[in-house]
């Protein structure tokens, strides 16, 4: 049981990382990783929607007719996203402004619908919670690792605190769209390199 919990929670980190390995949901990752605070906000929003949708669908999985499953998934995800947006507008207006269009776009984030289709609609509730948390963790780590690099190099700050003093001139490109592609490309390259090395080692054993 314990190993199963651990396995569900950690598989999103590297082995099935939704961003770096499965390459899903890249649009929001590229656009929101401008600053660490935005990335954190997006991760929380994503976790909220993923976990709640997975739980709801796991509970209802016996009452969802097979031919209607996609529309019902979308209705459920969209409702949670809209609820989230109301809550953000009411209680976190600055975060809502920063994330802007990317909150409504969580609806069409293929990571969520992918997890629901392949996992939550077939598995019990507890497993689905863990799966949702694990996949959100992987998403969060990916978007944060990009955002940290971009904010440090592109703005000279981390979480808004200046790192290098006023004489440092940040390379603006990193907070512009090309910087997002550059950083994600390099990070995917490093991860592939490391995992290839690891699997080669395993094979030689």
């Amino acid at each position: 049981m314990k190993t199963k919990i651990k396995q569900l929670l950690t598989k999103g980190l590297l082995k099935e990382n939704p961003v770096f390995v499965l390459m899903l949901g890249l649009c929001s990752v590229l656009a929101v990783s401008v600053s660490v605070i935005n990335a954190l906000g997006m991760t929380l929003a994503f976790t909220f929607v993923t976990v709640l949708s997975e739980v709801t669908i796991s509970v209802l999985r016996k009452w969802i007719p097979k031919s209607l499953r996609i529309p019902i998934f979308i209705v459920i995800i969209a409702s949670f996203v809209t609820i989230l947006q109301f809550l953000l507008q009411a209680y976190f207006p600055s975060l809502n402004k920063a994330l802007g269009i990317f909150i409504p776009l969580i609806v069409v984030n293929c990571i969520i619908i992918g997890r629901i289709e392949s996992f939550a609609s077939k598995k019990p509730v507890f497993d689905s919670i863990l799966d949702g948390l694990g996949i959100s963790l992987g998403y969060g780590i990916a978007i944060l690792s990009i955002a940290i690099v971009r904010e440090i190099l592109g703005n000279g700050t981390i979480l808004g605190y200046s790192l290098f003093g006023t004489s440092f001139e940040p390379a603006l490109m990193f907070i512009l769209p090309p910087g997002a592609f550059l950083v994600i490309g390099i990070e995917i390259g490093i991860i592939n390199h490391v995992s290839k090395k690891a699997s080669r080692k395993e094979a030689s054993k």
């Binding site: 031919s67 209607l68 969209a78 809209t82 109301f86």
Partner: peptide, 26 residues
Amino acid sequence: LGITLSLYCIIAALALSVTYSVTLPQ
């Protein structure tokens, strides 16, 4: 199927309208 889908939509709409009315003043 139609009834099932409408049921899901009605429940979703209800949840949304409740959240909306609660958060609107804020």
